[in-house]
C-alpha cells in the first residue's frame, strides 16, 4: 500500500509544478502589465516606465518565473508588486479566514448531507426522499449570490437576527466570528448540500442490487440496518470522493459569497491580484488553490484505498 501512496504523492507534486507553469503563462498573456493596471486611466508613458523599472518587469518572463519558483521552494513568496507588502502577510490572514469559513460550512454540510442521503436511501421513493430531493435540487439550481441576498433580506434586514456583513477580524472572539459568518456558512451549505446528498443516496442504492444485500434481506434484517451496516461501508469510496471535491470547492470557489458578505477571504485577494496584474500574488493563490485540490484528492484516494480491503492488502 505504501508504494501506491508514494506514487500518488509524486503525481500530485508533478501536477502542482505543471499548474505553476500554467498560471504563470496565463498571467503573462493577460493584456497590459502591473504598471498600466496600477495607474488605470491615469497612466502616462513616463509613470508606466517608472513603475516597470522599479518592479524589475523588464526581465524576461522565464527568468522571473525561475526566480519566483526558487524563492517559493525556500519559503519566500516574495512581495506583492502592487503595494510592496510581503505576500505571506496578506495570505496568512486571508487563508485562515477562508479555511475558517470552509470548516464551519463543512462541519454542517457534510454530516447533514450524508445523513440526509442515508435517510433518503432508506426511504427510497418515499415522500421524505422526494421532499429532500426537491429542496436540495432547488437550492443548487439557484446562483449563490441569489441565495445569499435572500438570506440577507430575510435574516438580516427583516428579522435582524444576523449581521449582513461578515467582515471578521483577528481580535474577535471565536463565538463572535462564528455568529458573524452564520449567513455565508448557511449559503455555502445550501450550495454544496445537494451534490453530496444525492451522491450518498445514489451510491447506497447502487450497492443495494448486490447479492450480499439480497442475502441480508433474506436473513430478515430491517432496511435501515442493512443500509447502515452493509451498504454504506461498501459505498464509501464514491462518497469520499464527492465530499473531497466539495470541500475543495468550499476553499477555492467562494469568491461570490465573499463579495456578497464582504468576507475577507483568499478569493477576493486573487481577483484583486489578477486585475492588478500582481503576478506573484496570483501565483501564490493559484498554487494554494491547486494544492488544496491535489491534497484533498490525495486524501480521498488514500481513504478510498483504506475503505477497500481489496486495495488495502498487497497482492
Amino acid at each position: 500500500m505504501l508504494p501506491l501512496v508514494a506514487q500518488r504523492v509524486a503525481l500530485g507534486l508533478l501536477t502542482l509544478l505543471a499548474v505553476s507553469v500554467l498560471v504563470f503563462a496565463g498571467t503573462e498573456i493577460l493584456p497590459g502589465d502591473v504598471a498600466t493596471a496600477i495607474l488605470g486611466q491615469s497612466a502616462t508613458p513616463e509613470a508606466v516606465e517608472a513603475i516597470r523599472r522599479s518592479l524589475g518587469l523588464e526581465e524576461p518572463a522565464a527568468l522571473r518565473y525561475w526566480h519566483w519558483l526558487a524563492g517559493f521552494l525556500h519559503g519566500d513568496l516574495g512581495n506583492s508588486l502592487a503595494n510592496g507588502r510581503p505576500i505571506i502577510e496578506q495570505l496568512d490572514f486571508r487563508l485562515k479566514n477562508t479555511l475558517f469559513l470552509a470548516s464551519a460550512a463543512a462541519s454542517v454540510a457534510v454530516p447533514l448531507s450524508v445523513g440526509l442521503g442515508i435517510l433518503a436511501a432508506i426511504n427510497q421513493n418515499g415522500s421524505f426522499d422526494r421532499i429532500v430531493n426537491i429542496v436540495s435540487l432547488s437550492a443548487i439550481s439557484l446562483p449563490e449570490f441569489f441565495i445569499g441576498y435572500v438570506l440577507i433580506l430575510l435574516l438580516a434586514v427583516k428579522l435582524d437576527w444576523f449581521p449582513s456583513l461578515s467582515a471578521i477580524s483577528p481580535e474577535m472572539s471565536f463565538g463572535e466570528r462564528l455568529y458573524d459568518i452564520a449567513l455565508p456558512a448557511a449559503t455555502l451549505t445550501l450550495v454544496v448540500l445537494a451534490h453530496m446528498m444525492r451522491m450518498t443516496r445514489a451510491a447506497i442504492i447502487g450497492v443495494m442490487s448486490h447479492p450480499f444485500i439480497e442475502m441480508a434481506f433474506l436473513k430478515g434484517l430491517p432496511r435501515w440496518r442493512i443500509i447502515v451496516q452493509h451498504a454504506l461501508p461498501n459505498a464509501l469510496a464514491p462518497i469520499i470522493n464527492v465530499v473531497a471535491i466539495n470541500l475543495a470547492y468550499l476553499v477555492v470557489g467562494v469568491i461570490v459569497v465573499e463579495v456578497v458578505f464582504v468576507y475577507p477571504g483568499i478569493g477576493q485577494l486573487m481577483v484583486d491580484a489578477v486585475s492588478k496584474r500582481d503576478v506573484p500574488v496570483v501565483q501564490a493563490c493559484g498554487l494554494i488553490f491547486a494544492g488544496t485540490y491535489v491534497g484533498l484528492n490525495l486524501l480521498a484516494d488514500i481513504l478510498a484505498i483504506l475503505s477497500n480491503p481489496l486495495l488495502r492488502v498487497p497482492k
Partner: peptide, 19 residues
Amino acid sequence: TLAINDTTARVNALISGSA
C-alpha cells in the same frame, strides 16, 4: 472604514445598521 465593493452589500449594510 470598511471595504464593501459590492453595491447591494453596501446598501444592505446601511439598512441593517452595519454601516
